[in-house]
């Protein structure tokens, strides 16, 4: 459970990145935090594992104030995968890279081995066990970074811009992976501005603008509300854009998914024939 109460944060250079953000994320929630660059998304999630400490207000993780414990302690519970895998890869082999976190948290040698194997399999990296992470392609490096965090099985998983620079196939894989985590009741938080991706996985959406949370609700509700979206510099998903222009026919506006769109259109035409 993450509880953020009226948090303000100012960087040492004087930039005020958070101006009174409040929110609650329950265990097992799947949340997408959206907004334009500089809206404070990454700043906000960096409070969840203590990398940043609120200038004012409180952040509680399972009731524990993040200012009172170390990043290492929080990280055990809150896994954070950075946007660019190259900010963390340094080991000689993929296997060692994945073991890094486990070693830092003091897992036993035997557990480390089994966890590494588990994570390699989960992200389809088993054939690269002994390969240098630097030899892999961008998409594979991203998966290694994800595996290296997932290895210690954190309760909460934060993914910063997971779809950036990814092609369609890689996004599909990521989507499958997230849905799988969701069924395991893991709390998942993604920071993104990829509306099409969010429309496909249909999470709870938090919109941010100028350090504040301006909307909080189901993707279906938030992403189909042009007034709210425009403030956060987000364009509605393509399917929604079509339906926003058809609303005078009495078709619903809250459509984000292509199969749902088909359903609505076919129903409409059928009714018309009758």
């Amino acid at each position: 459970m993450i509880e953020v109460e009226n948090v303000y944060f100012t960087y040492p250079n004087g930039v005020e990145a958070l101006k009174g953000a409040s929110l609650k994320i329950k265990n097992g929630d799947f949340v997408a935090i959206m907004g334009e660059n500089g809206a404070g998304k990454t700043t906000l999630v960096k409070h969840f594992n203590g990398l940043l400490k609120a200038t004012r207000g409180t952040v509680l993780i399972d009731g524990v104030d993040t200012t009172k414990v170390s990043v290492a302690k929080l990280a055990r519970k809150v896994g954070f995968v950075f946007q660019n895998p190259d900010s963390q890869l340094f080991s000689e082999t993929v296997e060692q890279e994945i073991a890094f976190g486990l070693k830092n948290f003091g897992f036993k040698e035997k557990t480390i081995k089994s966890r590494v194997t588990w994570a390699l399999k989960l992200l389809d990296l088993a054939q690269y066990r002994k390969t240098s992470p630097f030899m892999l392609s961008g998409g594979e490096r991203k998966r290694v970074a994800l595996a290296s965090v997932l290895a210690w099985n954190p309760k909460i998983l934060i993914l910063d811009e997971p779809t950036i620079g990814q092609d369609h196939r890689q996004k599909e894989k990521l989507l499958q992976f997230i849905l799988q985590m969701k069924t395991q009741r893991k709390t998942i938080i993604i920071v993104t501005h990829d509306v099409e991706f969010v429309a496909e996985c249909n999470p709870r959406v938090l919109l941010m603008r100028q350090g504040k949370i301006t909307a909080d609700g189901e993707a279906r509700k938030v992403l189909t509300n042009p007034e709210i979206l425009i403030q956060a510099s987000i364009v509605p998903p393509q399917i929604t854009q079509i339906f926003l222009r058809l609303s005078d026919f009495g078709l619903p506006k809250e459509v984000i998914d292509i199969y749902e769109a088909r359903e609505e259109l076919l129903n409409f035409l059928e009714r018309k024939v009758k």
Binding site: D167, K171, E196, Q238, I242, Y259, A261, R262, L265, L266
Partner: peptide, 15 residues
């Protein structure tokens, strides 16, 4: 090939 056909094009094909 999986290049990510634009959604409107996909909808057209489905319909």
């Amino acid at each position: 090939i999986g290049v990510g056909i634009p959604k409107p094009t996909r909808l057209y094909q489905i319909l």
